[in-house]
Amino acid sequence: MEEEQELFRVYRLVPQVYFPEQIHDVVHATKYFLQPEVLEKYKVDPGRVGVSGDSAGGNLAAALGQQFSQDANLRNKLKLQALIYPVLQALDFNTPSYQQNVNTPILPRYVMVKYWVDYFKGSYDFVQAMIINNHTSLEVEEAVALRARLNWTSLLPASITKNYTPVVQTTGSARIVQEIPQLLDARSSPLIADQAVLQHLPKTYILTCEHDVLRDDGIMYAKRLESVGVEVTLDHFEDGFHGCMIFTSWPTNFSVGMRTRNSYIKWLDQNL
């Protein structure tokens, strides 16, 4: 019974625990669920197990997939992963979507950066510096190579980059990464994972929304996965916004909420 409670708890939240405990929770729960006797108990086909999540849950689903991809005993346990407007990186808060949607309701940039600081139990004193990418300036050597893995000038199409320009500071605040090294950890920012990790991931669905600071995280991740041979479906909604999938009942039964939900479910029906 205690193990079942662990399984259905999903993961603990801030401020009860901080990164990387949430990842440990989802890995533990998934490994438990994948035990033959547990799959049999719930009448689950072991060849049809997928992992999915939205927003922060999309981050944890992506991190879980990467953790499994590095373990030969678990590598083929997941048939697919489905990521709904996922949070995938904390190195660049000036991608085109962050610039375009800086003050968009539901998830403005300032709030997203504060969420990252909360996740790492960091100081809000760093928020303003992180907003202008001081935490990954050129003088922060450990960040330079990782920033190359999310070079949006090459990973995003011209229809997305438009006239936006990268924000790369020459000098910044190395102290931020020194005090919060988790910012550069691929377990928190799956987009910066090494290619050797990405190539073993299962078939992937990524849903992105135009009016969302996280839009480009998902598009770049799709591009990186495709580059190493992973089969990816990128499902983009021009009229979508962060969290729109939950707005499917009165009085917020938005068309885009129903369309994103139906598109996601259709993909699962066809691929799982």
Results as ranks from 00 to 15, higher is better:
V111D: 13
K77C: 10
E40T: 12
V102R: 01
V17H: 08
G240A: 07
Y32I: 15
N73L: 07
S52Y: 14
T170P: 12
V256M: 07
E231P: 12
R109V: 03
E21R: 14
V177T: 06
A158P: 04
Q22G: 05
F93K: 00
L225W: 10
H242I: 03
D194Y: 05
D239P: 01
G218S: 04
F93D: 01
R259E: 07
M258A: 10
A145I: 15
W152A: 00
Q199S: 11
G53L: 11
T260Q: 15
L207F: 06
R75I: 12
T204G: 08
V197N: 00
Q35Y: 01
V113Y: 09
L13G: 03
V111R: 05
E3I: 13
P96V: 00
G122T: 10
L60D: 14
T204L: 06
A196R: 14
P96F: 00
N134Y: 01
Q195N: 15
G58L: 06
G122Y: 14
H200R: 11
A148T: 07
I219K: 13
N76I: 08
A148W: 05
S154A: 04
N151C: 13
N73F: 06
W250N: 02
D125G: 06
D217R: 03
Y110I: 13
V232K: 05
T161S: 06
A174Q: 04
E2S: 00
R187C: 02
D235H: 08
R48G: 05
H200L: 12
A29I: 07
L74F: 07
R75M: 10
K31L: 02
V140K: 05
G47T: 15
L7I: 15
W116H: 03
G47I: 12
F93A: 02
T252K: 08
K114V: 13
K43W: 13
L207M: 14
S173W: 10
G240N: 04
D239Q: 14
G229I: 11
D185K: 15
D92T: 10
V177A: 07
P181W: 10
S188E: 09
